[in-house]
Design a protein around this nucleic acid. Structure first.
Length: 270
DNA sequence: CCCGGAACCTGAAGGC
DNA sequence: TGCCTTCAGGTTCCGG
């Protein structure tokens, strides 16, 4: 599933399309377009030039020379493939570029969303801090956590609290910090908060180095997979054993999300 | 504010 | 082998 490291990788590897002009877009599954209407979308995007690509949380943002932003969310099974010729299976939208290449939005589950907006903050304005940017300091993290009494795992998945972390990296960060996912956010000691802060950044940076984790249907724009999942300690390792202590990895549901952890390395305290 | 649950989807995996 | 059920999860929305 595309989370921050996967979307960051896609953003980096789509760099070749910056400067290209969009000759047209085929919407093969119209409900993927969130706004505006299909007709307005087509007229506003045709012949626009892509002036930049950025990422905010799990959103990918194409800046256009019109001032509009084309914002894509890959949700769980989406990927953007750069290619030529016929689209791969499960392609839901095709962005045609003026050099004859295309960006294929492949998404078996049809959860992905496309929107074209003049004001990008109307989409990404409510997101929490970027965990890899300067503004995400241990102090900011501490203040935020103190306001929340929900299970830590649930808070880390809240995009308004911190942007870009999904199920896999929340589990990995909690493991690295040695903290149980059910611990209440406002119950952490200063040392634990600092450990978790470091763990979040470490886990995300390592995953970006590995070009993301291909646990499911994630592919890089080249069609290659990422390898971050080979370094996972607990995420998606049901039935396996903790690489540190050998204890069986457990899975519990927290807010309907499968949460993997080591019951020995991540002792429940209070 | 906080929480749970449904909805959106379909391939994969498990049960019988 | 094959049908049927359940599971997976990011976000949004609704109700308590």
């Amino acid at each position: 599933m595309p989370e921050l490291p996967e979307v960051e990788t896609i953003k980096n590897e789509l760099a070749p399309v910056v400067g290209r002009r969009i000759s047209g877009v085929d919407l093969l599954w119209e409900r993927m377009l969130h706004q505006p209407s299909p007709a307005e979308f087509q007229s506003r995007i045709a012949d626009r030039c892509i002036t930049g690509i950025s990422r905010r949380g799990k959103y990918l943002i194409f800046s256009l020379d019109s001032g509009d932003s084309l914002i894509i969310h890959l949700k769980m099974t989406g990927s953007l493939l750069l290619g030529r010729g016929s689209p791969p299976e499960y392609t839901r939208a095709i962005i045609h570029l003026d050099d004859g290449s295309s960006i294929f939005f492949r998404d078996p589950r049809k959860f992905g969303k496309i929107q074209l907006v003049a004001d990008r903050d109307s989409v990404i304005g409510e997101l929490g801090p970027e965990p890899l940017e300067e503004g995400f300091t241990p102090e900011v993290f501490t203040r935020g956590l103190q306001k929340r009494k929900a299970p830590l795992k649930a808070v880390l998945l809240d995009q308004g609290f911190i942007a870009g972390i999904g199920n896999m990296y929340a589990d990995e960060a909690l493991f690295r910090a040695g903290i149980h996912p059910l611990r209440l956010a406002n119950s952490l000691s200063d040392a634990e908060v600092r450990r978790l802060h470091r763990a979040i950044r470490g886990v995300l940076l390592a995953a970006i180095d590995s070009k993301g984790a291909s646990v499911n249907t994630y592919y890089r724009p080249s069609g290659e997979k990422g390898s971050a999942h080979t370094g996972f300690n607990v995420a998606h390792r049901r039935g396996e054993y903790c690489p540190v202590c050998g204890t069986g990895i457990e899975r519990i549901l927290i807010r309907q999300r499968g949460s993997y952890y080591c019951p020995k390395c991540q002792l429940e305290k209070r």
